[in-house]
């Protein structure tokens, strides 16, 4: 299953809910304002790191870059994807749930 999160983790609990309500083996994709969660250092970095063992975490590069972060600013273990990679995640992970 693919869980898409688009909310800043500093404002809403969507990422927290996506992490805690997804099964091991799920993929989590951060888009729009959720990309701030993919920064290498922040108060939510530990939460994201905690998810990385059991789930894959991906960040939409175009959204990350648009907000002033370069690819090297990404948290270790988080994969950067472009829109083509977004499509692949949708294709390869079964049902999609958006935590809007």
């Amino acid at each position: 299953m693919l869980h898409i999160v688009n909310k800043s983790p500093f404002e809403k609990n969507s990422l927290e809910q996506a992490i805690s309500n997804s099964k091991d083996g799920s993929a989590i994709l951060l888009i729009e304002d959720a990309v701030y969660a993919a920064k290498s250092s922040s108060s939510v970095a530990e939460m994201v790191k905690g998810a990385l063992g059991q789930k894959t975490v991906h960040v939409l590069g175009p959204d990350f870059n648009a907000r002033g972060f370069a690819d090297e600013d990404v948290l270790e273990g988080v994969t950067i994807v472009d829109y083509s990679g977004f499509v692949d995640l949708v294709e390869n992970n079964g049902t999609v749930q958006s935590w809007v």
Partner: peptide, 8 residues
């Protein structure tokens, strides 16, 4: 095969 929701 897949439905993707985009929202607030």
């Amino acid at each position: 095969d897949r439905v993707v929701v985009f929202g607030d």
